[in-house]
Design a protein around this nucleic acid. Sequence first.
DNA 1: TGAGTGACTGTAA
DNA 2: CTTACAGCCACTC
Length: 107
Amino acid sequence: MPKDKNFYERVYAVVRQIPYGKVTSYGAIAKAIGAPKSARMVGYALKNSPEGVPAHRVLNRKGILTGKHHFPGKNLMQQLLENEGLVVIDNQVQEFKKHFWNPEISD
DNA sequence: TGAGTGACTGTAA
DNA sequence: CTTACAGCCACTC
């Protein structure tokens, strides 16, 4: 059982706020939940991501689909992104910055 | 308790 | 823009 379950919950809370056709990075989420050093944990948390969490919209800072290998299908993650109007080439989102969504938690 | 692992990031070249 | 190195934190065994 995870001790800091709150950490996971916060990750999911942010990821769920990612709008359609937008993407963000693990670090951005980590920072949004107050743990900029725990970017790796964000990815770890997404592995446990329940339904309703668009984990496919979360990429690394280069805009590469680092987690596509963890999805059920072979290139499911890429298809989902392309389905949202994004352009993915060689596991990398084109114009990543342009589609980047800055997460923020309302106090 | 301690060592190993990972869907990462910042900095330097 | 990419590639390479070290630092991070939380989790599992």
